[in-house]
């Protein structure tokens, strides 16, 4: 399942110039969690995905997508 998920979190973060720690601080999680999501090791819950989307002022689909 994790192979099919495309994560664009790192790109979105780079566009804003945020560090992992800054993003983690904005949504109240550890930097470790952001790191594991970016590396595709951990798939976040719906709540956390929505929090991430809110932090970037975008839709969840802009950050996460299903691969073909």
């Amino acid at each position: 399942m994790s192979e099919a998920l495309i994560v664009r979190l790192r790109d979105a973060r780079a566009e804003r110039g945020w560090t992992q720690a800054e993003l983690a601080d904005r949504i109240g999680v550890s930097r470790k969690t952001i790191n594991t999501i970016e590396n595709g090791v951990f798939i976040p819950s719906t709540v956390l995905a929505l929090k991430l989307a809110k932090a970037f002022e975008t839709d969840v689909e802009a950050l996460f997508a299903l691969g073909d």
Partner: peptide, 14 residues
């Protein structure tokens, strides 16, 4: 409380 919540965030529980 915030620190405890972050110590037990989603990746830690996973």
């Amino acid at each position: 409380a915030a620190m405890r919540a972050a110590l037990y965030d989603e990746s830690t529980i996973e």
